[in-house]
Amino acid sequence: MDKTSQNKYFSSVFDKKTMMNRFMNDAEIACGVVRVFLTDTPRQLSLLQDALKDKDLETATRIAHSIKGAAMNVGGLSLAKLAAAMEKDGHEKHIPAMEEKLGQMKKNCHDLIGILQETFHIKDIP
């Protein structure tokens, strides 16, 4: 991936301006929310994976819905979009489509976590 494509990709993964506007440019609040996101979202993804493995459609849809909300809070645009699409699949009872999106969501979440750690200078995830 060249530099321009990489920048484009990163800006689709994380929208700092939108996030900071959401928290009235209060770095303390933003950082507090990011810390919670860094701890909780990987756990949610793992629960989502388990729910899909168990074909538990209701739980999987609810977790996708939660991840969508969490990602929107930290400016994670593409993760929010993926989670929204997965939630829609869930409402349509389309488990294979949900399973297909899981890999992409994990990759996206991994990238978002990296960018957030770098932006907010968080070395260790609590």
């Binding site: 959401r22 928290f23 009235m24 209060d26 303390e28 609040i29 507090g32 929310v33 919670v36 996101f37 909780d40 979202t41 609810r62 939660s66 909300g69 969490a70 809070n73 930290v74």
Partner: peptide, 16 residues
Amino acid sequence: EDDLTSRTALQLTLKK
């Protein structure tokens, strides 16, 4: 609110 991140965002904002 069930989502921890959204809950934290609301909690910190309202407290402020």
